[in-house]
Simulated assay, not measured.
Amino acid sequence: MKPLLTIARWIDQWNTLVGQAVTWLVLVVALVSAGNAVMRKLFSLSSNTWLELQWYLFGAIFLLAAGYTFLRNEHVRVDVLAQKLPERAQVGIEIFGVLFFLMPAACLVFWLSIPFFWESWITHELSSNTDGLIRWPAKLLIPVGFAFLILAGLSHLIKCVGFLRGLCPNPMRVSSGKSDEEALVEDILAQQRQAGIEAGQGR
């Protein structure tokens, strides 16, 4: 079991790296969207290239961050009844859900999306819109995103079994601490206070 938990940690590290990298795409999407709006409103200029780039980036954010979101227990769960059960019972239900719902569905989408991407790749498929982008990068996001989700599900399954055997903490336990946004705000405020202190000492 311990080698499997080591594999789960590696998977979690990769999903964390990908998820944190993808967060920067939110900024890129915002800049592209704002640039499109400014050019259209002020100069009556518009390009399907930039509009489609916007769509591609949105797709990348949602697909590539799916595994990281699952790792962070941020996916929506309808657990009104399950949350009243003991922890071990909740984890048992989670294992059932991962084995019989998440993994089959994710694996099916992954498998079906490979020929969907491959056909686009070999035919050099282009957008039907004027000045549109090539299509295969957007279609490649589907198998890649679901691959990360499958790995996250595998890691989660290993940790659930590990918890039942007393080898690791409950992977379903959501931290009661601060959210990422709250932690970021506090970090920025702390840096500003530190800069103020240093500026005061330099006078």
Rank of each mutant, 00 (worst) to 15 (best):
A152C: 12
R72I: 13
L184R: 12
L42V: 03
W118G: 03
R9Q: 07
K2G: 02
I114L: 14
Q90V: 05
E186M: 09
G162E: 03
T16S: 07
G153Q: 11
A21W: 12
A190P: 00
L151N: 03
A21C: 12
A65L: 04
T6I: 09
F110C: 12
L151W: 11
D79N: 15
S44K: 10
A60E: 03
V174H: 10
G59M: 14
G153W: 01
S176H: 13
P104G: 04
Y68P: 07
L164R: 09
N129L: 14
S179Q: 07
E125K: 07
R193A: 11
R9L: 07
A65R: 06
L140K: 01
L25T: 02
W118T: 08
L99S: 14
D180S: 12
L157Q: 09
G145R: 05
L51W: 15
C107H: 11
D79K: 05
V38H: 02
T130F: 15
W14L: 13
T23G: 08
A66N: 08
G196E: 10
F110I: 07
V109E: 08
Q90G: 13
V185E: 11
R193M: 04
A66K: 01
S120Q: 02
V91E: 01
L45P: 01
S128P: 08
H156S: 10
A82S: 15
I142R: 02
R40I: 06
G202T: 04
A199Q: 09
F117D: 10
K41M: 04
A152D: 08
H156V: 00
G200E: 09
L167H: 12
M39N: 08
H124S: 11
V29M: 03
L112V: 13
F116C: 07
P169Q: 01
W121A: 12
P171L: 01
E186I: 06
I188F: 05
A89F: 08
P171T: 10
A65W: 12
Q192N: 06
L99Y: 00
L64I: 00
A34K: 00
L81V: 15
A21R: 03
